[in-house]
Write a protein that binds this DNA or RNA. Structure first.
Lengths: 205, 205, 205, 205
DNA sequence: TATGAATGAGGCTTCATTCAT
DNA sequence: CATGAATGAAGCCTCATTCAT
């Protein structure tokens, strides 16, 4: 059982992490100063050091939190567990893009742009990526096993999917409402083609 | 008619741009200081300001040079003008990836990571992207027109291609020789699927 | 009569002072943060402020404690009260060096490096030095009075002795066991020469 | 042949070094900020980094300059090369103390207080000390060889001499004119006793 | 043209100190 | 009594930019 004090500390950290992840994601790790983060939190710069030993550590923790949340939401998506591999993969793709576009405007950059993190943090980030990747890999593997999917190579396909999804927020930057939904759907459909699934709304040849 | 002096100036600028593009590409715009660039050129930092008004301007110009070279090489690729749209597209993809991986290890970061360039530079970069994009778009459009390609939407497909190709240097970071060639080929094949082309080395079902 | 509470407070203070003196002595006043001290005491940083008004005050008190202990040990040394002035002085020197080298590795730095303490603390430290100095002065004075010692000037001789002894921990940094004992003895013998006592193990000319 | 530009640069460096050595010596390396040094030089903090890569490097260079000057002056002292070992040693001691007291008020602290310099600088400082030490060692060795000096051990004697001389500026802090000269002479005489030389102004027993 | 020198703003980090609980 | 939290000043360092020569 956690004491009230510990709970409060946890909340504070979470709050910092949320804001930091958002800012790092939007403007890039290097472009965001701790002063910026502190100001947005309405806190002194020094206070951040009470919770995090360095900017690097804050950055890693932010990525980790963001990645954990993200992965958890995908894992808990009901549609990811029902139906054919194609249906499940499409559901995962859509949800992933939706989260990227709607909640973490440009946060995926944190995963894609390789920064020379200190070793300690390198490992944590890798573990995170692996877990996240596994979600998609499982479904693709299954589709390949059943013969439903045709792929060049699972690794390559997954990489392409993630690379494309990471850019989604940039592409969708201006879109709202139905246009946004439609863009998301189209992107998911496009990526389904990487496993050999032709777009559903077009008649097969 | 250009004087000898102007010609020399042009050469100097070109030399600076080449080095700068390389360095920005490798380590990222922010991580490279003008001191670094000057040192590699064996020139004083102040001299750079004689040719470029600011670091931003040098950055934009470098990107432009790099992008121009890149696009020119793709445009001049013989295979890009012969054969079916599929053959031409595959040739373009392979060459593009090859350049990215072999010559500009991380240069694409410059295009993908949106930096808040001043407006003046923003425009130049956009124009560059458009010209580069047009190369691929033409081929895809043609394939769609002939019915050879099946796509969800040309824009989306092109975006996915570029996003994936931009990450290629990261994925191929450790590979050498045959393994590298094979990885490049597989990536190109994978991206061909985005236009409905199944991998060539697999028998269609 | 002191209450149980006051006694406990006294013990707490003594404990803090012991640890602080040790740490300041080893690494220097400036290099030790209150965080460091608190951590070693397994206490919160804020708690230290309950006992000491400032770091300076803690520093002075620590020096005082250390100095008091040191002086007390020299005062209680039996050999310091028996035999000829030469025997007593040599005993004092040896014990002083032994304490410096063995127990307060770099503590003398606290006395030698003049820090700009606030006036209040300046006085306390001066008083401490005087009491400590008096021990040696008494013996030297007596030796001079009996004609046993030949000195240029008592003040100067004492200063030289203390300066040399303060550096002893540095010189003996690597030595252990017999080598250490021998170094200590030689240093004491050397300093005895400042009062005209030739080394005992050499035959007088 | 050095160009005018190089000469100017050298002068600037020397000027910085002189001021820095003085300040570090007076108040201690840690207690002096680069801001302090810059201000005294009427220069911006950043400028110091144009000449020295870090505060540590500035510190080492300052020590080195100071030590070089000091040693050179002792080496060139005519009295250090004439007469008996006793006369030469006394001349060295007096000049050394004179320099310490008059020109580098508390600079010797830089040599005595062991700071954890980076390895690169550690070596340079050691070399400096050795050269400086050699001056005194030569004379003492010679006096011992001729039987003129009686010592416990040359190393120990030299260490005591230097330790004592380093504190001299502190002891002489308030003295001026004749009182200062007399104090210096007495200190030198006192240290001569470490090699068995009784004070000259006292009748031998 | 070219450069050595200088600068100032801004970034990361440490730490003594304060305070509400 | 004790502490967790917060703060702000100060320190070191980097770097784009300017300028006299």
């Amino acid at each position: 059982m956690v004491s009230r004090v510990e709970r409060k500390r946890g909340q504070r950290i979470e709050q910092i992490l949320t804001v930091a992840a958002e800012m790092f994601g939007e403007r890039g790790f290097d472009a965001v100063s701790l002063e910026d983060v502190a100001e947005r939190l309405d806190v002194s710069k020094g206070s951040l050091y009470y919770y995090f030993a360095s900017k690097d550590e804050l950055g890693t923790a932010a990525i980790e939190t963001l990645g954990d949340d993200w992965t958890a939401r995908l894992e808990q998506l009901p549609a990811a567990h029902e139906g054919t591999p194609a249906q499940r993969l499409r559901a995962l793709l859509r949800e992933h893009i939706r989260i990227a576009v709607r909640e973490y405007p440009a946060a995926l950059r944190l995963f894609l742009v390789p920064r020379d993190w200190p070793d300690a943090q390198q490992a944590r980030i890798k573990a995170l990526r692996r877990r996240h990747d596994q979600l998609f890999r499982t479904v693709v593997d299954e589709g390949v096993a059943t013969g439903e999917f045709t792929v060049t190579g699972v690794d390559t396909v997954l990489q392409c999917m993630h690379a494309a999804m990471s850019q989604a927020p940039v592409w969708c930057a201006g879109k709202r409402g139905a246009a946004l939904d439609s863009a998301i759907a189209e992107l998911a459909d496009t990526l389904m083609m990487l496993v050999g699934e032709l777009p559903p709304h077009r008649a097969p040849r």
